[in-house]
Simulated assay, not measured.
Amino acid sequence: MTTPRDLLIIAMDADVRHSPEPGDLSLALAGAELIDLLGAQAITLDGDHLVPGDRPPPVDRLLDDAASSLVRRAPYESLGDWLWRRGRGLPEAYLAALEAEGQLTRSRRTSWMPFQTGRTVPADAPAHRSAASRWSSDEPVLAALAAAVGIREEPTGDSADVSDDAVAAVLAAVNDALQELDAERRRRAIDEAAADNIRRGE
């Protein structure tokens, strides 16, 4: 399995209180792709720019798509630009891939809501078990991404220790992009509140 797939499965397993915002998850999945591409030496970092490498990406269709979409001419693409561009629609793409592979199922409806069909959840399949094992081991990268989107508390101890500088740079870029997105949400909320006040004549 890959880091973005594991992150999505963990997000689907999270209770409603810790379900990430779609925009947050989009950015984190794009960052997770970069981390896997770094691990496969399909990319390297030159400062905060992504330089395509010579090695092929891991055998995964969506990671192949990610690698093929890299800007291959100097000055290359910055981490931040990649996250915003690549993240668009990424949760839906990974959901579709998991569904096509039979990795998802519908939860059973509750007896007191007979007409509720349930929600889509990870099936009891190897992908789910692999993600759960990585999650329970408090693996640093997955823990950091989960914390960034609010699935869990901030990682502490060994789970906060990401020793690879390039991976740490990607995680920092994800956090910066999430803060930017949160600031934009706040600005929109203020603007909408002001517009509501004007409409009410306040």
Score class of each variant (00 low, 15 high):
Ser26Tyr: 07
Gly31Lys: 01
Ile10Gln: 13
Leu98Phe: 06
Thr110Met: 12
Leu50Pro: 01
Met1Asp: 03
Pro56Tyr: 06
Asp6Gln: 14
Val149Arg: 00
His128Thr: 14
His18Ala: 15
Ser159Leu: 10
Gly102Met: 03
Ala93Gln: 10
Ser136Lys: 13
Trp135Thr: 13
Arg61Val: 08
Leu63Lys: 00
Pro57Phe: 05
Ser19His: 13
Leu70Asn: 00
Asn197Pro: 00
Asp138Lys: 12
Pro22Ala: 13
Ala131Lys: 03
Glu21Ala: 14
Gly31Val: 09
Ala172Pro: 01
Gly150Trp: 02
Pro155Asp: 12
Leu29Glu: 05
Asp191Phe: 04
Leu27Trp: 04
Ser137Ile: 12
Pro75Lys: 04
Gly157Arg: 05
Gly39Asp: 11
Thr105Asp: 08
Arg17Phe: 12
Ile151Ala: 03
Pro140Val: 12
Leu181Met: 10
Leu37Val: 09
Leu104Gly: 01
Pro58Thr: 12
Pro22Thr: 15
Pro126Asn: 10
Gly23Met: 10
Ala100Trp: 07
Thr105Cys: 04
Ala144Asn: 13
Pro57Gln: 04
Ala144Asp: 11
Ala194Val: 02
Gly39Asn: 05
Ala173Glu: 02
Pro4Tyr: 02
Ala195Ser: 03
Arg187Ser: 08
Ala74Phe: 10
Ser163Thr: 13
Val51Leu: 12
Val51Ile: 14
Leu83Asn: 00
Glu192Leu: 07
His49Gln: 03
Asp164Trp: 04
Gln103Gly: 06
Ala148Thr: 05
Val162Gln: 06
Thr44Lys: 04
Ile190Arg: 02
Gly89Val: 09
Ala195Leu: 10
Asp165His: 09
Ser163Glu: 12
Asp54Gly: 00
Ala125Met: 13
Ala100Glu: 11
Glu192Tyr: 02
Leu34Pro: 02
Thr110Ser: 11
Arg85Lys: 06
Gly157Gln: 06
Asp161Cys: 05
Ala32Ser: 11
Ala147Leu: 11
Gly201Asn: 02
Gln116Leu: 08
Val16Ile: 15
Leu98Ala: 05
Gly23Ala: 14
Leu25Asp: 14
Ala194Ser: 03
Thr3Leu: 15
Glu184Ser: 08
Val149Tyr: 04
Arg108Lys: 13
Pro22Leu: 13
Gly47Phe: 10
Pro75Arg: 04
Ala131Pro: 05
